[in-house]
Amino acid sequence: MGRKGKKQPQPKVTWAQAFRDIVIAAMNRGQLLLLMVVAVVIIPVWKMTPEESSRLVFDVLENLKNGSILGYILFVSTVLGWFFHARAMRRIYSNEYRRIGKEKSAIQSKAAGAKFKSSDR
């Protein structure tokens, strides 16, 4: 059980430490490029005045109406579709390879008459 008494004060996390942790996590998961693209889009919008940002929203809506940014939307949706499809295929193939490995190990153990340790972690 826990100790009774004074609680240890939690160290304060600064914005720089939080940003560093976010960048490191994005690097580990292969999402650094996505993080950079989001930052390049979000930071300029954040720095705009309210009048400029409302004008930007109306310009984007007008371009959506006349179809001039339809190609960008289709491109982004195609890339997202590819990403999710590739991820699903990797998961399916990994499961199949794992199943084949277990089946092969069982057959080898049966043929040798001995139980072998698995190399899986």
Results as ranks from 00 to 15, higher is better:
Q10G: 06
A16L: 15
E52C: 02
F19Q: 13
V60E: 07
P9H: 05
V38K: 01
G101V: 02
V40F: 11
F75V: 11
A88Y: 06
G113F: 02
S105W: 03
G30V: 00
V40I: 12
F75G: 01
R91T: 00
L70G: 07
K65G: 01
G81L: 10
A88V: 10
L33F: 09
I92P: 05
N63I: 04
E52K: 06
A25D: 05
L64Q: 04
I22C: 11
P9F: 00
E51R: 04
P11H: 10
L34W: 03
A86C: 08
L61C: 00
V23M: 08
T78L: 15
R20F: 09
I42T: 12
S54Y: 11
Q31E: 15
M27R: 13
M27G: 12
F19N: 02
Q10E: 13
F83Q: 14
R55K: 14
A114K: 11
P44E: 06
A26I: 00
E52F: 06
A16C: 05
W46V: 09
Q10A: 14
I100E: 10
F58N: 13
S105P: 00
S53H: 05
L80M: 04
S53R: 09
P44T: 05
V57L: 15
T14V: 08
K102Y: 05
Q31V: 02
I107S: 04
K4R: 13
K6W: 08
L56M: 14
Q8E: 12
F116N: 01
R29T: 13
S118W: 05
L61F: 03
E62L: 06
A88L: 10
S118V: 04
A88R: 14
M1I: 08
A39W: 02
K12Y: 10
I22K: 07
Q8R: 15
K117Y: 04
I92H: 03
E96P: 03
W46L: 14
Q17E: 15
H85W: 07
I107L: 10
K115F: 00
P44L: 05
R3G: 05
S119F: 00
L70W: 04
F116R: 06
M27E: 15
G5W: 07
I24L: 12
E51I: 12
